[in-house]
Amino acid sequence: MAKSALLKSSLAKKYWMALTGLFLCLFLVGHLIGNLQLLSSSENAALHFNQYALFMTTNPAIKLLSYLTYISILFHAIDGIVLTVRNKKARPVNYVMNNPSKNTIWASRNMAVLGTVILIFIVTHMVTFWGKMHFDKAMPLQTMTISAGGMPQEFYLTTDGGYVPKGQVDQGAMVIKNRTEFFDAGANVKVKEGYKDLYKITVAFFKDAKFGLIYTILYAISMIVLGFHLYHGFGSAFQSLGANNPKYNGLIKNFGKGFAIIVPLLFAIIPIYIHFFIK
């Protein structure tokens, strides 16, 4: 009974809110490092990004961390809603002399609203990219064109560093199974495995002729919202965990401010670069 009451208490929820929030900050850093490959001007940029995508979706340790991330997002969102409702019920009527704008920053007074916008962005983002990578049977495979005998020929890039002539698949000598695996059509034996072209999907999304600019703007706005959320949430998480030492408070606060600016800014630069600079 005591354990149940503890888990349901506002104090316990603040602890979990802080822990899941800090874990998600680590996820943001890892996700950003991988996505920054989209800014590369190298001719192998697509291959490197697709190799990263394959690693993130097949490595057992990464998959385990991914499930932990999904749980953390849901827990963080639900916990935030519960705490907001409890705080509203605890103080249903504002004090006459209450002036929140002088006592707290805007982000701290609107964490629930900011968090809701971010949650909507995450769901939309996962449907657009994560969902296609995992479940879309029409997901394109990465190809490259090579001039052979003066004639351009298209090949599927494979995960072993080789290739499969696209013409062999089109002519029925090979078939593609399970979205990525090439099988010999006659012997029904697996030959190679190709890369899912998430790079192509991502670039096409932000360069869409009708809505690409709108998608880019909405993404950038979402990153501004994320910045405000992190601006208050980072320092607040350490306070909730009891890390309130005058010797380190300034360092934590300044690091949090830098994190809240740099990370969302770099994320926002990616779609802007794709839309305006990738041809």
Score class of each variant (00 low, 15 high):
153 Q>M: 14
153 Q>F: 00
153 Q>R: 14
154 E>F: 01
154 E>Y: 01
155 F>V: 07
155 F>M: 09
155 F>R: 05
156 Y>T: 04
156 Y>V: 07
156 Y>R: 06
156 Y>F: 15
156 Y>Q: 04
156 Y>H: 06
157 L>K: 13
157 L>N: 10
157 L>V: 12
159 T>C: 06
159 T>A: 14
160 D>V: 08
161 G>Y: 06
161 G>S: 08
161 G>W: 05
161 G>K: 09
162 G>Q: 04
162 G>R: 09
162 G>A: 12
165 P>S: 12
166 K>E: 04
167 G>R: 11
167 G>N: 12
167 G>W: 02
168 Q>N: 11
169 V>A: 14
169 V>F: 12
169 V>L: 13
172 G>I: 11
173 A>R: 13
173 A>K: 14
174 M>E: 10
174 M>S: 09
176 I>N: 06
177 K>I: 01
177 K>D: 02
179 R>Y: 04
179 R>V: 03
179 R>F: 03
180 T>W: 01
181 E>D: 14
184 D>N: 15
184 D>F: 08
184 D>Y: 08
184 D>W: 08
185 A>M: 08
185 A>Y: 05
186 G>R: 13
186 G>Q: 12
186 G>H: 09
187 A>I: 02
187 A>Q: 14
187 A>R: 12
189 V>M: 09
189 V>Q: 14
190 K>R: 14
190 K>D: 00
190 K>P: 00
190 K>Y: 01
191 V>W: 02
191 V>R: 13
191 V>A: 11
192 K>H: 04
194 G>K: 05
194 G>V: 04
195 Y>R: 06
195 Y>E: 03
196 K>F: 03
196 K>V: 02
197 D>E: 08
197 D>P: 04
197 D>W: 08
197 D>S: 12
198 L>N: 11
198 L>T: 04
199 Y>V: 05
199 Y>F: 15
200 K>N: 10
200 K>V: 00
200 K>G: 03
201 I>M: 10
201 I>P: 00
202 T>A: 14
203 V>W: 09
203 V>G: 05
205 F>M: 04
205 F>L: 03
205 F>R: 11
206 F>I: 11
207 K>D: 01
207 K>C: 03
207 K>W: 07
208 D>F: 02
208 D>E: 12
209 A>T: 05
209 A>E: 10
210 K>L: 07
210 K>S: 12
210 K>Q: 12
211 F>Y: 15
212 G>I: 12
212 G>S: 11
213 L>P: 01
213 L>N: 03
213 L>R: 12
215 Y>G: 01
215 Y>K: 14
217 I>S: 11
219 Y>I: 01
219 Y>Q: 09
220 A>K: 06
223 M>W: 03
223 M>S: 07
223 M>P: 01
225 V>H: 01
225 V>L: 02
227 G>Y: 04
228 F>Q: 04
228 F>D: 00
230 L>D: 00
230 L>T: 00
230 L>K: 00
